[in-house]
């Protein structure tokens, strides 16, 4: 397997707070990679660094062998490296279908396409993906009026609409009703196998991430603590200590 994302010695500080220190990780193409760690361990900071939300202090980030640490957010997204947010972000004043249609991959469009209407195929694709996440009945409602869990599903569907190569998910199951979580795991898997999207997931729900990931990384205090298969991580004493507060 090829490494599609390669993060090397990346550091990031906010003033005196070192959020990431010399972190090196790799995401394999076509796989599901997990990122865990206690609150405040620097997981989201690492995500933000990868997608270009802030300049990094040092190190290098490569996507498909291209250095992306100096690129703007939009340009990284246009390469096919997409993220969802921990605090779900959708376009609240538009209905679900409009949310989906605006998420069409703009990297594949010309200026002329921007000044034309959406095609029937676009609408069908939006409907299909909304049904995939179970929001078809609510597709004409203002997305801002949906519950938090439904907004999360909508954001996931929007990401799929964009046809990314790699999808970075920041806590996809947080705030979702436990009975829906199994369905979500199934959909994430199908996104990986059927749509061929490489997933890189931050998750606090151990049952979810241990079930899905084939490679995992654990951060603590801004540093890489452990890496390995879910089994290795589960039995790593340092990881258990970090979660229970032995540090």
């Amino acid at each position: 397997m090829n490494k599609i994302i390669e993060v090397k010695d990346v550091s990031k500080s906010y003033g005196g707070v070192v959020a990431n220190k010399d972190i090196s990780i790799e995401v394999q193409e076509g796989g599901i990679t997990g990122l865990i760690g206690p609150n405040g361990s620097g997981k989201t900071t690492l995500f933000n660094s990868i997608v270009g939300y802030h300049p990094i202090d040092g190190g290098s980030i490569k996507f498909q062998n291209q250095e992306i640490s100096k690129l703007q957010v939009q340009d990284i997204a246009r390469l096919g490296l997409l993220r969802t947010f921990q605090q779900t972000r959708i376009y609240g004043a538009m209905d679900c279908v409009q949310n989906m249609l605006i998420s069409l991959p703009h990297r594949k469009m010309s200026l002329n396409d921007m000044f034309s209407r959406n095609t029937k195929a676009d609408y069908e694709k939006a409907d299909r993906l909304l049904e995939f996440v179970g929001l078809y009945e609510k597709r004409f409602l203002r997305s801002g009026s949906l519950s938090f869990g439904q907004q999360k599903l909508l954001e996931f569907a929007m990401a799929l609409m964009n046809e990314p190569t790699v999808l970075l998910l920041d806590e996809p199951t947080a705030g979702i009703n436990p009975t829906l979580i199994n369905g979500l795991i199934d959909r994430l898997r199908r996104a990986n196998t059927e749509f061929g999207i490489t997933l890189f997931i931050i998750e606090h729900n151990m049952r979810v991430i241990m079930n899905m990931a084939d490679k995992m990384y654990c951060l603590a205090h801004g540093e890489l603590l452990a890496e390995g298969t879910p089994d290795e991580i589960q039995n790593d004493q340092r990881v258990i200590d970090a979660y229970l507060g032995a540090h």
């Binding site: 997608v51 957010v73 997204a77 972000r89 376009y91 538009m94 249609l101 396409d113 000044f115």
Partner: peptide, 20 residues
């Protein structure tokens, strides 16, 4: 689609950027 992009900027500009 241009109009839709304008609405996206109104609702959440950072999200719009993150979507490319």
């Amino acid at each position: 689609r241009f109009g839709a992009a304008m609405n996206a900027i109104r609702d959440d500009e950072e999200k719009a950027e993150a979507m490319g």
